[in-house]
Design a protein around this nucleic acid. Structure first.
Lengths: 247, 247
DNA sequence: GCCAGATATTGGTAATACATCTTGGTTGAC
DNA sequence: GTCAACCAAGATGTATTACCAATATCTGGC
């Protein structure tokens, strides 16, 4: 990617310097003219980089004074630390209440669209998209903007962290028939306009997910131990030793 | 604030034009030079504005081709429509589960800090800050980053919309003794490590808030009707008519 | 249909003038 | 003598103009 513009390179470098501690939080950055010389670019380019940092709320520029590193500019501090278990637990609790709420206010049209997602999952096997739609429709059925927002935020959290993506990937793809069963149970509870039943069905859905997640993590941890043991075994094995010395 | 830099004004204007539909999503913006002339600023200033929009992911710049309005350009402008009732309902449900979760994992230290907020509210009358701390400590006690995030997001939603701020202001300041009572009930449930009781106590807290909110809104609506009637009354009253014609 | 050149558009730099803030010294009152 | 207010100079960001380079897109000839 040679097409990336100059100022973005500068943005990256300055951010790195901030994260590195070279530019302390609260301190003043070197003046534009100095940075221009340091990075070997023109002043307008430095200005553009600073504007980008300003839009990202990493720095604050005070006219006539200088540009200052803002609180919370540090990369690590910004994103919350959430693992897959926490996320799933949160979704279970929030979406449980969402389902209960939706059970009393869901429309026939929404029930139809909900049923469509079940068909989509079963016949076309488009599990991922059908799942997203399913939960989204239920959230919408609450008629509560704040709850819709919470659900969508938790959903986006799912894609924010690399570790969570990995964990989910190993779980979601398989066991899609279980997902379908549970979704069907939730749908039936909503169709019956039964809040308590909808809540329980939703809880069951996520409980199973947590357990699968736990098994997967356990299996992976076991695999990790085995791998490390193999490394050690290789390190200490006689055959290996012979091979190496034989060369 | 006249100190606001040029390019921010341009950013606002271009965003307005996009939201207005003057610049369709996916279409190309006029060339920099044209925009510079149109907004009566120099080309670098336009460039800065475009960079700000680019960092915000509203537009995409293609070298040698032009700058294009991105898909999600409209989404950023529209903020979620949430009224005070929805928000309070959402908080009741989410924080109810939060309280239940916290009841099983809260530490003695957190209980002490929680008790401090009760004292703060009672003695120093610092209701607002004590309230914020109270709910924040409980969220933290869940040890669940996703739940903490949801709670803090709902809290920030409270200050995002003018209408909600007004509604809350008319409710929160008075009835602080009721708030204190309810907070104490929640505290006791947490201290007893009783999830179900904690959930109910939290629900009670927000239920009362919703009712108060409802009364306040009703009262305000009544006041509004009265005011309008008075206007009409003034308009049609004989005495008023006499006064005017007498002049 | 394809390729090469023309044209349009953004990318980047340099030089310059100006506005604003900070700093430090000076002045004046007490 | 001390302290505050004021002022001036330097530092720093703000903004403009002018210019050329790099890239993408269009156009016309083949």
């Amino acid at each position: 990617m040679k097409s990336r513009r100059m100022f973005w390179r500068i943005v990256d470098e300055i951010e790195a310097l901030i994260d590195n501690g070279n530019f302390a939080v609260g301190s003043r950055l070197p003046p534009e003219r100095e940075l221009a010389e340091k990075f070997d670019v023109s002043r307008p380019t430095i200005r553009e980089a600073i504007i980008a940092l300003e839009v990202r709320e990493k720095v604050e520029v005070k006219t006539g004074s200088g540009v200052y590193v803002l609180e919370g500019a540090l990369k690590g501090a910004k994103q919350p630390v959430v693992n897959a278990f926490e996320l799933t637990q949160a979704r279970a609790l929030v979406e449980g209440e969402v389902a209960a709420l939706a059970a009393v206010s869901i429309t026939d049209d929404e029930l139809t669209r909900l049923h469509d997602t079940l068909v989509m999952m079963q016949e076309r096997g488009d599990t991922e998209e059908a799942d997203r739609l399913f939960h989204s429709i239920i959230a919408g059925a609450t008629r509560n903007g704040a709850m819709i927002l919470s659900v969508s935020q938790l959903w986006s959290l799912r894609e924010s962290t690399a570790a969570i993506i990995d964990d989910y990937a190993s779980v979601c793809s398989k066991d899609s028939h279980l997902t379908l069963e549970e979704h069907t149970a939730i749908y039936n509870a909503l169709k019956a306009r039964n809040p308590a039943e909808a809540r329980v069905a939703m809880h069951n859905h996520f409980n199973r997910l947590i357990n699968t997640l736990f098994d997967a993590t356990e299996a992976r941890a076991l695999e990790e131990i085995r791998r490390k043991n193999n490394e050690k075994r290789g390190l200490y094995s006689i055959t290996n030793l012979v091979k190496h010395t034989a060369q």
